[in-house]
């Protein structure tokens, strides 16, 4: 089956420079175009991968910028977090903050007076439970 043929349109050459081209050359060019147009899907996929691989180094600077930006943002967040934490525990904190910190210290601190005052009671209670179990 004959396919319609398109004459070659040279990109750079003038018609005068090329001269009259023989018909069989025109047909040869059309056949070559046809062969390039009809490449199978697997080959086209590999060409696409080859192109992406070749272009990858040009895309890396943009990706590097993104990674660098993310790291900088994370570092900034860390600095802000540490700064806020330091501010909470610093002596220049506001009275409200200081009161809250005292309550926490009272609950979890080592010097809980109630625990110390009832220490003998807790020891007796523990001994009773062990006797009951034994």
């Amino acid at each position: 089956m004959n396919t319609p043929r398109k004459p070659l349109q040279p990109r750079r050459s003038s018609a005068a420079e090329n001269g009259a081209r023989e018909a069989w050359v025109e047909r040869a060019v059309a056949l070559l175009d046809e062969s390039a147009r009809n490449l199978d899907a697997a080959t086209l996929s590999r060409l696409n991968r080859a192109r992406q691989t070749a272009l990858a180094p040009r895309r890396r600077p943009r990706q590097a910028w993104l990674v660098g930006g993310s790291l900088a943002a994370a570092a900034l967040a860390l600095v802000i977090g540490v700064g806020l934490g330091h501010r909470v525990s610093s002596p220049t904190a506001s009275p409200a903050d200081a009161a809250g910190q005292d309550e926490i210290d009272a609950l979890v601190g080592d010097d809980n007076p109630d625990l110390y005052e009832n220490l003998e009671f807790y020891a007796w209670l523990n001994a009773q439970q062990q006797d009951g179990n034994g």
Binding site: K6, L8, Q9, L32, D33, A36, R37, L39, T43, L44, L47, N48, A50, R51, A54, L55, R58
Partner: peptide
């Protein structure tokens, strides 16, 4: 020369990618 080529470049494609897409089949 290849009006049926499915890999039609888009305006968003970088020029170099369009160029490679244009020549790759004949190069192969």
């Amino acid at each position: 020369r290849m009006p049926d080529a499915p890999a039609t470049p888009t305006d968003e494609s970088p020029a170099i990618e369009r160029f490679l897409r244009d020549v790759e089949r004949r190069a192969l």
